[in-house]
Write a protein that binds this DNA or RNA. Sequence first.
DNA 1: GCTGATGTTGGAACCGGTTCCAATATCGCA
DNA 2: TGCGATATTGGAACCGGTTCCAACATCAGC
Lengths: 340, 340
Amino acid sequence: MDPVPPKSRDRAPTIRDVARHAKVGVGTVSRVLNDSPLVSEDARQRVHQTIDRLGYRRSSMARSLSLGRTQMIGVVAPFFTRNSVLERLRGVVGKLRDHGDYDLVLFDVETLTQRDDAFRSFARADRVDGLLVMSVRPTDEEVENLRREGLPAVLVDVAHPALPRIVIDDVLGGTMATEHLLAKGHTLIGFVGDEPTPFGFTSSERRRQGMARALRGAGIKRNGALEFRAPHGREEARASAERLLSLPEPPTAIFAASDVQAIGVLEAARSGGLRVPEDLAVIGFDDVEVAEVLGLTTVRQPLRETGARGVELLLAAIDGVGGDPTEELAPLTVIERRTT
Amino acid sequence: MDPVPPKSRDRAPTIRDVARHAKVGVGTVSRVLNDSPLVSEDARQRVHQTIDRLGYRRSSMARSLSLGRTQMIGVVAPFFTRNSVLERLRGVVGKLRDHGDYDLVLFDVETLTQRDDAFRSFARADRVDGLLVMSVRPTDEEVENLRREGLPAVLVDVAHPALPRIVIDDVLGGTMATEHLLAKGHTLIGFVGDEPTPFGFTSSERRRQGMARALRGAGIKRNGALEFRAPHGREEARASAERLLSLPEPPTAIFAASDVQAIGVLEAARSGGLRVPEDLAVIGFDDVEVAEVLGLTTVRQPLRETGARGVELLLAAIDGVGGDPTEELAPLTVIERRTT
DNA sequence: GCTGATGTTGGAACCGGTTCCAATATCGCA
DNA sequence: TGCGATATTGGAACCGGTTCCAACATCAGC
């Protein structure tokens, strides 16, 4: 009557319980579980029936230990401070859902200490089978550790010569943004970007260089007084923009190194009573989800797609398919909306 | 000279290697690793030195198997479709970073099939030590499975009588939103909300009920023709709002069941050439990050805080501290901005 | 010098899978 | 009938930790 044998009522059945009840060896049960062809049809059926009857579920922990694989991949990123990371994460989650039966382990890093912790604790083939690192640059030492542990890793939005990576041409992006403003007739263009961080996240600086290049191309001399840097964030960008707008000769357009910062600029314009784009044009960078609803003109980089692509590269690397660490460039487009 | 003994160059040192080199038993090494007081100072030092010398790192996989704990907690939620979930996730990540050394495993569910998969694969004390379920209602059967497996679970933004949960009073929220609009002098109030989903996510409907209650309280008869429901999403809400605004007698205010939908309503107003709030007042629900930058009036529920609180309850439940499954109500506030 | 309490230790057994090896059964073919 | 090749099988050994138990040392107290 009772499908569950009394003796195993208290603890979950193991592979040995199944073997005993099905009157086969543990090896055979394991082979059935792993769809090995080396099992007779008869034994296979008996094992399957016993599994159903006992309600057996195999322990992924034991399996991991035995196999040396965890079927998990780790994502290291600053989820709090970078909106773009969440957008990329969506791409990661989506890709992983369809492709491959890996689970996702999150590791948030905001400070230097956390960065170190993350790499120390993750940098072992033990907890995860591979690492996706987004918007945080690992040190040479950390990369060396990964290599020594044999833990595959892929970078997104950040570069290291020893690892496969997906990046954008930040300089080009800065140039594109600036040329867009130049085409609209602006010549006094301000810049609001990031302070250099201890993470070595310097895309903001490269975008500014792109801006300088575009200005040079247009025969306009770079004016350092129109460039403001602050820690990344909406509030900070707003403060920068307010100072920029209170200059004796304020810019007629501002290039913000990220959409989050562009939003801060928009807030400064609003509180200063400036009309956008008539009195002040604003262009951002990234094209996060908010940009569309705000009507923010921006340089679009494919966030979801790069997240998804990172997963593809990582899965390939885990399977040992990856060749040399290559750098992939994601395409950039200026999306013109209502702020320019 | 060489700190790494030749014999162990190929594979990572194990606890037995450490024991051998330190000339102690494996038990002693394990005790040192776990800060047991039952170790002499002398042995402790020898073991620590050996660990440093060999570069030993303990395998969390083996530890998990032996301990029957994984030090991971799972989060099940629709990360794609619900913006509010990402906001809550930030609270989860933040809390988990400070408190307790648990890693976070993500499980995205968007469809019914995925929901079933998620619970089937997670509903075992095997991969995770506890489950945080956000904005997805588990079925009775799934809850029963969790109970049988002894896997602690906490719900956020969704209710089941058998599990501890953090929810809001949606009816009250709907009432608050509507009363805010009534106080502004509106009497023709439209509603844009969710279609009932197979997930049993019915907060939209309860918010509408709260609206009906407020209207009743003000002596206004409910008008079903002003209520539109569609699958959750900005575009869908925009379509609903456009139909609402093209009625012969269009509403002067719209209550949207979520901020995402409110944004759709704003877009409809913009494309219809309506000024907000002069021609159309809009109030949303949730107070996601975008709401602030858009100046959207909304009913605020503490998203981050509830995520964080969910973690607290879950950790308590894992430690066996949790008593009866209780329901916690998060506070609601109307945040008045520029759309009303 | 004996007793019992206390402190410390080594190592076997265990967690629950996978894999390899040796053993047996079956079969085709000379 | 005998042989090797092939199919299938059981189970020991292993993955790398933790824990329990028995054993031994030390010491206070009588």
